[in-house]
Design a protein around this nucleic acid. Structure first.
Lengths: 161, 161
DNA sequence: TCCCAGTTGTTTAGACCTAAACTCTTCCGC
DNA sequence: GCGGAAGAGTTTAGGTCTAAACAACTGGGA
């Protein structure tokens, strides 16, 4: 039961038997899984006229709880992307009407990005559907395997710093 | 021992206790690990004046064995990226002197991309160093855990089709 | 032999990201 | 108060990808 990643490992073992190829089995599979899940999400969301970046923005605001408002700096930290990318995501979501930027009193530099009613409603729909769908994607593994995998991933991630 | 992914899960559990959040623990961690490994590789390669796309191209050719030559279509299939992206990767690597495109007899449409001596040499250095480095990244896990993780990832990937 | 549909490769338009430059505000220390 | 450094947000340049348009060869059937 071999997959494309085994083929890569075997290629290197054949060509350079002295190279340590064990990490490929973990890291390359993680890359492929990430790509697969990303593509799947992009396809699903495109059919609903949105995209993963916008969903991530709305979900971050939603998860923060009432009043569903955060500063750009907070959003950047929570989303693990640059502040510049947040500006662009917010501009796009604002054009679509999902969020509204509240600027401080005249000329203030600070601002807060807040979910609109429409944005809140959209997010509830999308997240509910997506989580249900993604649950089915991991159910090829038994409950025990899922728990084991979760723990191993957590440990690997924690070990990286 | 909680990480940022647990915070996301707890956020949803608090805001929407009816949503099935188990998949987040697997999928989001896979995304974060993929991002971490990608960033790490990009940083490492930038210090050596290259980038992951170029390394992937050279490695695919190298792994194919003598004479280290493939057509663009074969490269696209092996690399899991579009043919257009291959054109651009090849153009860049050719400018740097790592590969050479051999076109068929006058006016032929077919072509083969071949590693140059310099490209072969560069690849040996980079892959040797990277694999040694990446081995250290997974050694926070015991040998048994690494084997278990590899199997679970393989099974999850296979289950996606 | 000729035609045209399919295949192969390249180019271009459009996304989205990062990094860095830039603008404006805030606030510390004198 | 004042001046300038630090902080916050936006804009822009550059890079890489996909999707789609485009260009050019190939090969089977009339």
């Amino acid at each position: 039961m071999a997959d494309g990643v085994d083929a890569i490992q075997e290629g290197w073992r054949r060509e350079r038997p002295d190279f340590p190829v064990e990490s490929i089995g973990v890291i390359t599979r993680i890359w492929r899984l990430a790509q697969w899940f990303s593509d799947d999400r992009r396809r699903t969301l495109r059919a609903l006229d949105t995209d993963p970046s916008t969903l991530d923005l709305l979900s971050t605001l939603r998860r923060s709880g009432e009043p569903y408002a955060m500063t750009p700096a907070e959003l950047a930290e929570a989303s693990l992307i640059s502040a510049g990318a947040i500006s662009q995501r917010v501009a796009k979501a604002e054009r679509a009407g999902w969020v509204h930027t509240e600027r401080g009193a005249s000329g203030k530099r600070t601002s807060r990005v807040r979910l609109t009613e429409a944005g809140l409603w959209l997010n509830e729909q999308l997240v509910g559907d997506l989580l249900a769908h993604e649950q089915t994607l991991v159910e090829h593994l038994s409950p025990g395997e899922r728990a084991q995998l979760t723990e191993l991933l957590r440990k690997l991630l924690a070990g990286l710093g």
